[in-house]
Amino acid sequence: MQIFVKTLTGKTITLEVEPSDTIENVKAKIQDKEGIPPDQQRSIFAGKQLEDGRTLSDYNIQKESTLHLVLR
């Protein structure tokens, strides 16, 4: 499925993911596309910070959902 990741600069990245993917996985995909190390990424969805060990389905993130990426 496709999800979108919006950065603070307003750029939107499209990722191909599975509901079973962990947040860690997703951060690795963002690193592949953007070169941002996962330890600098904070992902926010529906106002909640997403934890690395959880999966997209844990957070009820579905296709075409938009995550927000904040850098630390």
Rank of each mutant, 00 (worst) to 15 (best):
M1K: 00
Q2E: 08
Q2G: 03
I3K: 00
I3R: 00
I3W: 02
I3C: 02
I3Q: 00
I3T: 00
I3A: 00
I3D: 01
F4Y: 14
F4T: 05
F4I: 04
F4W: 06
F4N: 03
F4S: 03
V5R: 00
V5Y: 03
V5N: 01
V5A: 03
V5W: 02
V5D: 02
K6G: 03
K6F: 08
K6Q: 09
K6P: 02
T7Q: 04
L8T: 13
L8R: 10
T9D: 14
T9S: 13
T9W: 14
G10A: 02
G10F: 03
G10E: 03
G10H: 03
G10C: 07
K11W: 08
K11Y: 11
K11E: 09
K11P: 04
T12G: 03
T12Q: 06
T12R: 07
T12M: 11
I13A: 02
I13M: 05
T14N: 05
T14K: 08
T14L: 10
L15C: 02
L15M: 04
L15T: 00
L15K: 01
E16G: 04
E16Q: 11
E16D: 13
E16R: 09
E16I: 13
V17A: 04
V17D: 00
V17Q: 00
E18S: 14
E18N: 13
P19G: 08
P19T: 08
P19D: 06
S20Y: 09
S20I: 05
S20V: 04
S20E: 10
S20M: 09
S20F: 09
S20W: 13
D21R: 01
D21N: 05
T22L: 09
I23L: 08
I23S: 02
I23W: 10
I23M: 05
E24D: 07
E24Y: 14
E24P: 03
E24L: 14
E24W: 15
N25P: 01
N25F: 11
V26E: 01
V26L: 13
V26C: 04
V26K: 01
K27A: 07
A28M: 14
A28V: 11
A28L: 15
A28I: 13
K29C: 05
K29F: 05
K29W: 04
I30T: 02
I30H: 02
I30E: 03
Q31E: 11
Q31G: 08
Q31P: 04
Q31S: 12
Q31I: 07
Q31H: 13
Q31D: 07
Q31C: 10
Q31M: 13
D32W: 09
D32V: 11
D32E: 13
D32P: 02
K33D: 07
K33N: 08
K33I: 14
K33S: 10
K33W: 11
K33M: 13
K33R: 10
E34K: 04
E34G: 08
E34F: 14
G35T: 02
G35L: 05
G35P: 05
I36R: 05
I36L: 08
P37Y: 09
P37L: 09
P37E: 09
P37K: 10
P38K: 15
P38R: 13
P38S: 14
P38T: 15
P38Y: 14
D39V: 07
D39N: 11
D39Q: 10
D39S: 13
D39T: 09
Q40T: 09
Q40S: 09
Q40F: 09
Q41F: 15
Q41K: 07
Q41C: 10
Q41I: 15
R42D: 14
R42I: 15
R42T: 15
S43R: 05
S43C: 15
S43N: 11
I44S: 06
I44L: 14
I44C: 14
I44D: 03
F45G: 02
F45C: 09
F45W: 14
A46E: 14
A46N: 15
G47P: 03
G47T: 06
G47K: 05
K48Y: 10
K48C: 09
K48F: 11
K48N: 10
K48A: 09
K48D: 07
K48R: 12
K48G: 07
Q49H: 13
Q49D: 14
Q49T: 14
Q49C: 13
Q49R: 11
Q49E: 15
L50H: 01
L50A: 02
L50T: 02
E51I: 09
E51S: 06
E51G: 03
E51Y: 06
D52R: 01
D52H: 04
D52V: 03
D52A: 06
D52M: 04
D52G: 05
G53W: 14
G53S: 12
G53M: 10
G53A: 09
G53D: 11
R54D: 04
R54W: 09
R54C: 11
T55I: 06
T55C: 02
T55V: 05
T55A: 06
T55Q: 06
L56Y: 02
L56H: 03
S57F: 10
S57D: 08
D58K: 00
D58P: 00
D58R: 00
Y59C: 03
Y59Q: 03
Y59S: 01
N60R: 06
N60S: 06
N60I: 01
I61P: 00
I61A: 00
Q62P: 08
Q62H: 10
Q62W: 05
Q62S: 10
K63L: 05
E64G: 15
E64R: 07
E64C: 10
E64H: 14
E64L: 12
S65V: 02
T66R: 03
T66P: 00
T66H: 14
T66N: 03
T66V: 13
L67K: 00
L67M: 05
L67R: 00
L67P: 01
L67H: 00
L67C: 01
L67F: 01
H68Y: 14
H68L: 15
L69Y: 03
L69T: 02
L69K: 00
L69P: 01
L69V: 07
V70E: 09
V70D: 05
V70P: 03
V70H: 08
V70I: 12
V70W: 08
L71H: 10
L71T: 09
L71P: 09
L71Q: 09
L71G: 09
R72E: 11
R72Q: 12
R72H: 11
R72S: 12
R72P: 12
R72M: 14
